[in-house]
Amino acid sequence: MYVLNQICKIFDSRTVAVRELDLKIGRGERVALIGPSGAGKTTLFRMLNLTIPPTSGTLLFDGLDSRHFSGRRLREVRRRIGTIYQQHNLVPRLQVVHNVLSGKLGSWPTWRAVQSLIRPTEADLALEALRHVGIADKLYERTETLSGGQQQRVAIARLLAQDPEVILADEPVSSVDPALAAGIVKLLIDLSETHCKTLLMNLHSVDLAFAHFPRLIGLKDGTISFDLPAAAVTDEHLAALYVGSQTEAVEEEIFSRAEPSFVRSCQPHLTR
């Protein structure tokens, strides 16, 4: 489905978010992406769903070079890729039903979209999607009045309404309780299994990744640290992935806020 070759992404000609990344993902494959905060996972997803172009390197989607997409073609390809965002990315003032149905925008003509804003045209579809994530009663609520976890589920319902071939899920369970998180991951896995959809999921919970995904990719500092079948991933791999960058970042954060004397008194304890 995807072939990435020497992909780099540099923001503002300074921040290197992704560097020289090679990756191949087949149709119907289920892959979990893990890695510390700031590793470039979200940036990678934004390139995979054709929101931002790579600074250099080639990205083939379904055998076609992403650089050749533009206008209508681009939209048709985007329609086939569904994304669940880390921050939900819903329109707060719209009713839930419109946010869910916005997944259909790629297949609707504009007049239809406008008509649906006045009177939802496929409300039953939206209801069905919401039922899958357990919040069917919220159909006509304003999205901003929902809790964080409920909003995340609306975003998933939007993806269900879109019914894409590829699902990119950027930490889809970051703001729901553990039981529900397992349920949602299961839901997406089922979806991918029964309809042979490609699924890429970004997870902070390593346990969930091991439990549900045959292939794990570790991303660190914008490059691939390992790319192995789940069974082959060892504790050393994980340690190498998370050591350094994350703890450093956390330390930095703590110390920059605290008083110097406090830092001094803590340091030996933390660096041990």
Binding site: R46, N49, L50, T51, R75, E76, V77, R78, R79, R80, I81, G82, T83, Y85, Q87, N89, L90, V91, P92, R93, L94, H98, S102, G103, K104, L105, G106, S107, W108, T110, A113, V114, L117, A155, R158, Q162
Partner: peptide
Amino acid sequence: QPIEALQATGASRLQILFYGILPQVLP
């Protein structure tokens, strides 16, 4: 962010205007 999400579903610019921008700016 919501606009990015709409675009990723394959919405056209006009559709993004109606679904993503107008609801935000209207009030």
